[in-house]
C-alpha cells in the first residue's frame, strides 16, 4: 500500500502539467483584466517554481519578483532569490523589511519567534499588495498542497494571494516539477525552510519528512483512506494521528471568516457564485 501511495504522487507527464499550470495562470490573470503578476521570491523551491511558471505563462516582462529579507534571513536565501530573478531576467526588487519589523518589536522585546515570523510574513504580504497596486498586477501565491493541508503558513501572510498555481502540488511534486522546468539544482536540492529564524527547517518543525507527510496526505485526502487503513499501510500510528490532527486543526486557515446567518441569503453560505462570475 505504501508503494501505491508513492506511485500516486508521481506525475506522469510533467510537460503536460506544466502546460496546465501556465494555462491556468494566463487565463485567470488575463480574464481578470491584468497582464502582470508579482511574486515573493524567498530563495526556496516553491516560489522559484511559481516564478518559472509565471514567466512561461506571461513572459518575463510581465513578472515582478520581490525578495524581502530580514536581517536574520540566511545569506543563501537572499542569493538564491537573486539567482532565480537573474535566471529568469525579470524585474526584481530587494526590500529589506528589518526597519519596520524592528521598529514594531521595540515595543515588545520579549516577543517569541512565532510572533516575529508571522509579523514578517504579513509585512511581506503587505508589500506584495502595495506593489500589485503600483504595477497593476495580481499577487501570485506560492503555497503548496502539503503546507495548505497542514496549515504550515501564516494566516493572511504567505497564505494571502490572488491566484495559486501550485496549491494542488504536494511538496514532493513541487520538487519534481521544479527540476523539470529548470529551477537551479541547488534550490531544488536544499533543505526546505521558512527561514523565519536562523536554523529553522520545515521538516524539523513539522517533525517528519515531506516524503512521509505527502504519502499520508495523498492517502487521506486524494484516496480518502481512513486512519486505520493508513496505519495498516505501514505508517507509525502516532505519526498518522499527528498529521490528521494538523489537517483538522488548521481548517480555519483554509476558510474565509464565518458570518452569523440571520437572513435568507448570507454572503459566505448561500450566495454561491464563483469568483470568475462574468469572466
Amino acid at each position: 500500500m505504501r508503494s501505491r501511495l508513492e506511485r500516486e504522487l508521481h506525475i506522469e507527464d510533467k510537460a503536460f502539467i506544466e502546460s496546465v499550470l501556465t494555462y491556468f495562470i494566463r487565463e485567470e490573470v488575463q480574464k481578470a483584466g491584468f497582464q502582470k503578476v508579482v511574486v515573493g521570491i524567498s530563495g526556496g523551491v516553491d516560489s522559484a517554481l511559481t516564478a518559472f511558471l509565471s514567466v512561461k505563462a506571461l513572459g518575463k516582462e510581465n513578472v515582478i519578483g520581490l525578495s524581502m529579507p530580514y536581517r536574520t534571513s540566511s545569506r543563501s536565501s537572499v542569493e538564491d532569490a537573486r539567482l532565480v530573478a537573474e535566471k529568469l531576467e525579470i524585474e526584481f526588487h530587494e526590500i529589506d523589511i528589518t526597519p519596520q519589523i524592528d521598529a514594531y518589536f521595540k515595543q515588545f522585546p520579549d516577543a517569541d519567534n512565532v510572533r516575529r515570523g508571522n509579523k514578517m510574513a504579513r509585512e511581506r504580504m503587505s508589500i506584495l499588495y502595495d506593489f500589485a497596486h503600483w504595477k497593476k498586477a495580481l499577487v501570485i501565491g506560492t503555497s503548496n498542497k502539503s503546507e495548505l493541508l497542514i496549515g504550515y503558513s501564516t494566516r493572511w501572510g504567505d497564505s494571502a494571494h490572488d491566484i495559486n498555481p501550485i496549491g494542488d502540488l504536494y511538496k514532493t511534486q513541487v520538487w519534481e516539477m521544479a527540476e523539470f522546468v529548470g529551477v537551479p539544482e541547488r534550490i531544488v536540492k536544499k533543505k526546505p525552510s521558512a527561514d523565519l529564524w536562523p536554523g529553522q527547517t520545515d521538516e524539523g518543525e513539522i517533525g517528519l519528512s515531506y516524503r512521509t507527510l505527502d504519502q499520508i496526505l495523498v492517502g487521506y485526502v486524494d484516496l480518502r483512506l481512513r486512519r486505520e487503513e493508513l496505519i495498516r499501510a505501514g505508517f507509525d500510528q502516532k505519526t498518522v494521528e499527528r498529521v490528521l490532527k494538523m489537517v483538522r486543526n488548521s481548517q480555519y486557515k483554509r476558510k474565509m471568516p464565518i458570518v452569523c446567518k440571520i437572513a435568507q441569503r448570507t454572503v459566505d453560505k448561500d450566495f454561491l457564485y464563483l469568483r470568475d462570475w462574468g469572466l
Binding site: 496546465v20 494555462y23 491556468f24 487565463e27 485567470e28 480574464k31 491566484i163 464563483l274 469568483r275 470568475d276
Partner: peptide, 8 residues
Amino acid sequence: VGCEDGFV
C-alpha cells in the same frame, strides 16, 4: 476548454 476558478 477554458478555466473557471481554477477548474481547467
